[in-house]
Write a protein that binds this DNA or RNA. Structure first.
Ligand SMILES: [Mn+2]
Ligand SMILES: [Mn+2]
Ligand SMILES: [Zn+2]
Ligand SMILES: [Zn+2]
Lengths: 143, 143
DNA sequence: AAGCAATTGAAAATGAATATCAAAAGCAGG
DNA sequence: CCTGCTTTTGATATTCATTTTCAATTGCTT
């Protein structure tokens, strides 16, 4: 799975004529090693502790490349920081976001997706993408 | 309806011990006179043309009060600006957002709302609020 | 009118993200 | 392995929306 993603990125880089750099390799390794929904700052700090030379601008730039390459997706929750999550080809899910502990629970619901299509059709609207975020308290935080 | 909202705000202000100020009256008038989904900057500029003395910090502060009072809701789309929309007591809707012309179409769907409750229940999650935004092209912009 | 706390507006601060740009590094072709 | 050209990088400056600060003003109570 990790090798798969590295290959995906290398193919993308090749097709775009991007150069292979130490920084991009490192950032990809660290991104692939994180759990879901890392903020740029979080990832940058992790990388910096082992590779002090790497600048945050490069992390910002490289994560955008990962999105272009199709192996990451931007997730904008309401804390003012852009986060990135892993994405497998064709996969989609939405989020339950706990405002107590910041936990994020992922879910998929066919019926909701389908209803969205119906609503869009009813308005002659062509869907490009969507986001459904449910905010509240997770089981732990309801206490 | 406008009088209703003014009353709502006055009640809120009274209950919180807030003072009645010229600025708040003006900002409320202008907010109530706008259509849906005004950005702070848009509202501020409108107000400033007739009332040059009013500062943008006051507009920012006052819109937050309107949210607290229950007559406005924050809408964060992806253009980096916070927008505010009117909200009637208890009413809820979601948005189709056209990335071509920035039009916003509102919709409500009982079934989707219900399915969200089910999903939350399945995870022991307590919903506080949610946002569903569908991005794409409206009928006009599809060409 | 006096006193006091809330409010305001100008200006400074914040913070995430982007732009700038000189130095460094990757990638040919020879 | 050099040479030359182009991309990439990292430090730094910049942007832009929003928040904070704080002295001056205002609203409200007595
Ligand atoms: Mn996710
Ligand atoms: Mn709306
Ligand atoms: Zn939680
Ligand atoms: Zn449109």
């Amino acid at each position: 799975m990790i090798l798969e993603k590295k290959k995906t990125f290398n193919n993308f880089a090749a097709s775009k004529g991007l150069r292979s750099t130490r920084q991009r390799d490192i950032i990809l390794d660290y991104f692939l090693a994180t759990r879901q929904h890392v903020s740029v700052e979080e990832l940058y700090l992790k990388i910096k502790s082992a590779h002090p030379g790497i600048g945050s601008a490069t992390v910002y730039r490289t994560l955008k490349l990962f999105v272009e390459a199709g192996l990451a997706r931007e997730v904008l929750l309401h804390d003012g920081q852009t986060r990135y999550e892993h994405v497998m080809a064709g996969e989609h899910h939405d989020h339950l976001v706990c405002t107590g502990c910041n936990a994020i629970i992922e879910f998929e619901n066919e019926t909701i997706e389908h209803l969205q299509d119906e609503i869009a059709a009813r308005h002659g609207f062509l869907i490009r993408n969507h986001k459904l975020e449910i905010y509240g308290l997770c089981a732990n935080c309801r206490g």
